[in-house]
Amino acid sequence: MSDKAIKVRTFAEMTAAGETPEILFWVGCSGSFDDRAKKITKAIVRILDHVGIKFAILGSEEGCSGDPAKRAGNEFLYQMQAMQNITTMNMYNVKKIVTGCPHCFNTLKNEYPALGGSYEVVHHTQLVQELINVGKLKVQGGEFKGKKIVFHDPCYLGRANSVYEAPREIIQKLDVELAEMKRSKANGLCCGAGGAQMFKESEKGTKEVSTERAEEALALEPDVIAVGCPFCNTMMTDGVKHFNKEDKTKVLDVAELIAKANDL
């Protein structure tokens, strides 16, 4: 990925300048604050920039989607967050949203409508697929050409929303060998982060879920474990480190693959 400086504007700034963004880029908490996830966020920005989509973020007006609170049983906190966000987005008359995280994607798309927030919500892999399909984004394999890549399905993109093909189609566009784990698509195994587990120690057991999943992926000896979720990214990175395989196998988001391969 190039070091070109990125320019991102907020809805507030664009509205003040009399402009109307086509799409809201919902960055999410991980994408905003986690150092590793910020790189994914920037890769998404570079793709959006490259194709010339007029997008904006909410910046400090964005709050947690409420997903971890809801999955952990705190419906009050979830609804507080959701209604705050909905108020903001309705004020800006948001129509379409792209998220960098399947958890935000799921919550905004499926759970906000019941609280008065109905938008067209897509996950970034779906947007990239759409851009490729309509010919706005041309991709080539670049440094990944001929490499072996295995895709780990995020639960909240896959099983939760039945999106299995978008990330795979994009990866295949890179002229790579797409390997599949035995537990994939509808039978995919969680990375261990979902259901607010990201924020707590696991219960007593024999193994970490992330270790179990990384072991399965590493058995295929891939050059890259591709993910579509910042939490999966953290977990799979931990898992790969557990087996001291970080030199051989990289954990990268699909957005990063596209941005790196095409020098965006």
């Binding site: 990125i6 604050f33 400090s60 947690c64 409420g66 952990a72 507080m80």
Partner: peptide, 27 residues
Amino acid sequence: ELTNMFSNIENNGAPWQFSQSDRANWT
């Protein structure tokens, strides 16, 4: 840890202790 996460979301709009006003710092 989850109780902590809840209060972070409540106070900062994120599950970690970062200030909401810093949300766009990455840009």
